[in-house]
């Protein structure tokens, strides 16, 4: 089995208040995420990306269709804890997911809930903190740390549960550029070195460009799906649904519109500069 998350014909509507009808988010969404991959889910506000994330570990349950996580049906109540230890979640606001007021105690929270033995918790906490580069801050109070550091603590708290997959719901939306870089580097490293499946929900194009695969959601269905190069070269489609391509691609696209065609698959600075240079000389 090499599918980490499998969504089959998902149907979901937020329950309506009193007599009003609910708000349909998904009617028939299918998507599967390969184990060990790094997938970015991209979409404008209200496209359903956060709702989808909440299906990945049984915070929300499908109204129709199925969601499987590591082969487990998320609507099976008995599997709840097993599912949640397999799929860790990191949310947008770092302040609201840190439980304890000492860094290492917070990281220990997950394993403690799982009933892991004390010496093993100690080992996992130390390892997780080293993994995210926050070991030296283990005795600090979280509220005195920067946003990027807090978010790395939250990530450490998840990896201490040793999940197979981490879902990050706009983890950088409230961070400054430095914090965003710190978090993205941490996430990339987890995927590369620990073989953890990463699902990154974002509306930052440059972050999505770092993934192996980009899924664009629009109004509850998949509007584009493929490698970053494949997805971002569809500049017009992205504009139509209220998104933009990374600036490098936008530049190449605009040059093309002005009669200087440049290939649209140059995501990083180096390749973009090279492509333009080749065209200009």
């Amino acid at each position: 089995m090499n599918e980490s998350i499998c969504v089959e014909h998902l149907n979901y509507a937020y329950p309506g208040v009193e007599d009003t009808p609910g708000v349909a988010v998904f009617t028939d969404l299918s998507l599967s995420i390969e184990a060990g991959s790094f997938v970015a889910i991209l979409g404008s506000n209200g496209c359903g990306k956060s709702t989808l994330a909440k299906h990945f570990n049984s915070i929300l349950l499908p109204c129709g269709g199925k969601v499987y996580v590591c082969g487990m049906d998320t609507s099976d109540d008995d599997l709840l804890i097993k599912i949640r230890r397999s799929v860790g979640m990191v949310f947008q606001n770092p302040d609201n997911q840190i439980v304890a007021n000492v860094v290492e105690e917070d990281v220990a929270f997950g394993p403690e809930n799982l009933g892991v033995a004390s010496p093993e918790i100690r080992r996992r906490v130390d390892q997780a903190l080293k993994q995210v580069g926050m070991y030296e801050f283990r005795k600090h109070a979280p509220h005195l740390l920067s946003g990027g550091q807090k978010q790395r603590i939250a990530i450490a708290g998840i990896i201490a549960m040793e999940p197979k997959c981490i879902v990050l719901d706009e983890p950088t939306a409230m961070l400054d550029p430095r914090g965003r870089r710190e978090v993205m580097e941490t996430v990339m490293e987890l995927n590369r070195n620990k073989d953890i499946t990463v699902v990154l929900i974002t509306h930052h194009m440059d972050e999505a460009a770092m993934a192996q695969r980009v899924v664009v959601l629009h109004k509850g269905s998949v509007a584009a799906d493929g490698t970053p190069e494949q997805v971002f070269s569809q500049v017009e489609l992205l504009h139509r649904i209220g998104l933009a391509a990374p600036e490098t691609v936008e530049l190449c696209y605009e040059l093309g519109q002005q009669g200087i065609p440049v290939p649209l698959d140059c995501l990083d600075i180096e390749r973009c500069a090279q492509a333009i240079y080749d065209r200009m000389t």
Partner: peptide, 24 residues
């Protein structure tokens, strides 16, 4: 901005360009 970075790189490669900060 990324465009600025691209232009820094182009300049380093030998193109005669001034720094820019927008796509236009």
């Amino acid at each position: 901005p990324d465009v600025t970075r691209v232009f820094l790189r182009l300049k380093a490669m030998g193109l005669d360009v001034d720094p820019v900060y927008s796509i236009d």
